[in-house]
Design a protein around this nucleic acid. Structure first.
Length: 659
DNA sequence: ACCACAGTATTGGAGCCCGG
DNA sequence: CCGGGCTCCAATACTGTGGT
């Protein structure tokens, strides 16, 4: 108010003039206040929801957040009351200004009084109580044993690390990562380990193999482990919990335990199965069949015994599994709880980013990275294919696709190999970056010791590595696996130094990761895996605003295509070798946004034995894999071996080089 | 045509952590 | 303790743009 005062002191005009100045000022302040109030309100609401989520999950809430909520808690009051009270304050100010009452002006309180904040809860105590409750419930006896050797501080550190609250330096961070790994794997204590193994051993073997979606997991559990009376929710949760301990299952990055109840509600028909299929029916015609096929319920809850039972709907096993797989895929995509959870988490992340002051250090960055890793949705098109060095025939098939992909660099593309569809975005280098005005297109390819000099200029090692990461089974794998896939590229020189390739891939991954919010790859230090962040997207998603990653590419495919042909009037690049010509001729009309779909690719590649899945709508429903794999097919790919094979060595010997 | 500049790709090395 | 793997950073080279 001091500035206002000075205005009045300088103003030597009449009382009326002063008054009009005051009301003018009041109007200005009022308008500004409304805008600010609106902004504060929306931010505060967001912050409040985050704090609520944190509290619900026993995640430590930092003092700044609490202080902020308390200081501005008045904005949650009734908006009319707020308006009235602020108007009252404004009137007071005007009156004081009119009578030139400087003392009152200074003493008028602009904000409501703040209640002394309640003493913050002890985070350590919370965790301890949580553990005590958990053990006391007697549901997880083996867990109690496991926790004996672990200090509360370890858990806090692990949770902190998970949630990015670590205030420790780099050293500590890495160490906590290790601790977390220890807890996750429960491998530190032999007793616990043995117990878990026993539990897992008691699971039907089919559960540790490839299962078509979570609904099928529930089905298997209820059918094979349910006694005559069925299974209680707790028991079911227990089993899912142990199933979730399986490292392969953990690699899906999904909190399956949280899905048990929503899934049961859905499968019991309580949350309208038809609702899901109705939404789905807009997606694809095939879903109409789904709606018709859906029984009223898959599971029933016996209120007397409090047990869940699987309903015999008269469907044969294969049909039911297939139906459940499709339903699960649709559920995840449309009404999925996972999605819901994730959108919440995304909000948290965004808010935290906004909350941060400009001075973010390396720790914050790593922390944010770690945060985001958990948030990458599982792939639409799960596979049990294990990454291995391609045969010459597989490589030939890939190179045809690769040529196709790079012949239309302005578009997203789907690689389809080993029964896995990998979606990649447009080649960034092709026609301008992310909305940047600068053209990044070169007229000739920049020389690279590992890449053929006659490759298209928009093919860089980064792009090749990016595609390789996308092609990893389920969008995740180790660096040697990426290297194996990179070697499939036809743009690589015939002879290269493995060491050099290795280093280049490392650098390329590094760069890809540091591309910012839209970086296509992400490194998970806990699992030591590289993860493709866009594995859950469909090609059109790359041009749409996406809740998980924002807007990836501007929807300028037509413009980019035109620009492309302007720069490369020949209609693009044709590899000047004796390779097979691209199937799609350049002269073809290019007005569409044609993305080769799975069927199309399948048709052209007799070698592939891919099922006739609809385009993503039945992502977890892959019959062919089960047929060819049988019992040996694992739920997820085998544990990663840190070994890399080079194609040059492959046929001479079985020697595999360790990097 | 030439030059300066900005942006980007690539390389290579130091430092750190982790597992054997 | 050592080597592998990853991150980070500085140096260098290349490319397109815009000004003269």
């Amino acid at each position: 108010m001091t500035t206002d005062e000075s205005i009045y002191q300088n103003d030597r005009g009449s009382a009326e003039l002063r008054s009009s100045h005051a009301s003018e000022l009041s109007c200005m302040i009022n308008d500004e206040r409304k805008v600010l109030l609106k902004e504060i309100r929306s931010r505060l609401l967001r912050l409040k929801s985050i704090v609520d989520i944190k509290m619900a999950r026993n995640i430590p809430v930092n003092k700044r957040e609490l202080a902020c909520l308390e200081r501005f808690s008045f904005v949650f009051d009734d908006i009319d009351a707020l308006e009235a009270s602020s108007k009252k304050i404004a009137d007071k100010i005007i009156r004081a200004a009119e009578v030139e009452d400087g003392d009152s002006l200074i003493n008028i309180e602009l904000f409501p009084r703040v209640e002394p904040p309640p003493s913050p809860k002890s985070e350590e105590l919370d965790v301890e109580n949580l553990i005590a409750d958990y053990v006391q419930q007697g549901q997880y006896v083996s867990f109690g044993e496991a926790l004996k050797g672990i200090r509360v501080s370890d858990i806090i550190a692990a949770v902190d690390m998970e949630n990015g609250n670590s205030k420790a330096g780099k050293k500590v961070k890495r160490k906590t990562g290790r601790t977390k790994g220890a807890i996750k794997r429960n491998s530190q204590l032999p007793a616990k380990k043995a117990k878990n193994r026993n539990q897992l051993r008691s699971l039907p073997p089919v559960l540790t193999q490839y299962v078509r979606g979570f609904f099928n997991v529930l089905r298997i559990i209820l059918l094979t482990l349910g006694d005559a009376g069925g299974l209680s929710t707790e028991h079911l949760c227990d089993i899912v919990h142990f199933w979730n301990l399986n490292p392969r299952v953990q690699r899906t990055n999904s909190p399956w335990i949280k899905l048990v109840r929503p899934a049961l509600a859905l499968l019991s028909g309580r949350s309208a199965l038809t609702g899901t299929s109705r939404t789905a029916s807009k997606e694809s015609a095939g879903s109409l069949d789904l709606e018709r096929l859906l029984p009223p319920a898959f599971v029933v809850f016996n209120a007397a015994t409090r047990m869940w039972c699987w309903v015999d709907n008269g469907l044969d096993e294969e049909n039911e599994a297939s139906l459940l797989a499709r339903l699960f895929a649709l559920w995840l995509k449309k009404n999925g709880t996972l999605k819901h959870l994730r959108s919440h988490l995304d909000g948290v992340d965004k808010e935290e980013v906004e909350d941060e002051d400009g001075d973010e250090d390396e720790e914050d960055r790593s922390r944010r990275r770690a945060l985001r890793i958990d948030r990458i949705p599982p792939p639409h098109f799960a596979t049990d294919w294990q990454c291995k060095l391609s045969t010459p025939e597989q490589r030939r098939i890939f190179q045809i696709q690769e040529e196709e992909r790079y012949s239309r660099p302005w578009e997203p593309y789907i690689y389809n190999q080993h029964g896995y569809a990998a979606v990649v975005g447009p080649v960034l280098r092709a026609v301008g970056g992310e909305g940047g005005s600068r053209m990044r297109t070169a007229l000739s390819a920049r020389e690279h010791p590992l890449l053929r000099p006659n490759r298209p200029p928009w093919v860089s090692l980064s792009e090749i590595v990016r595609d390789a990461v996308a092609r990893l089974p389920n969008g995740e794998g180790t660096r040697p696996e990426i290297a194996m896939l990179v070697q499939d590229s036809g743009f690589l020189v015939a002879s290269f130094s493995p060491k050099q390739l290795n280093q280049c891939i490392s650098s390329a991954l590094d760069r890809l990761q540091s591309e910012g919010a839209n970086s296509p790859v992400m490194y998970d230090p806990v699992q030591r895996l590289w993860i493709y962040r866009f594995r859950h997207l469909s090609p059109p998603d790359f041009c749409k605003s996406n809740p998980h990653i924002g807007r990836l590419y501007k929807d300028q495919i037509v413009y980019q295509r035109e620009r492309f042909f302007q720069i490369y009037p020949g209609g693009g690049y044709r590899r000047p070798t004796n390779r097979p010509q691209p199937r799609r001729r350049r002269e073809e009309p290019l007005d569409d946004r044609h993305i080769p779909d799975i069927e199309e690719l399948t048709r052209e590649e007799e070698e592939m034995e891919v099922g006739d899945e609809e385009y993503y709508s039945s992502s977890t429903d892959d019959d062919s894999r089960e047929e060819e794999g049988g019992a040996s097919m694992a739920f997820f790919s085998q544990p990663r071996r840190m070994r890399l094979e080079y194609k040059h060595h492959q046929h001479h010997s079985h020697h595999s080089e360790r990097l």
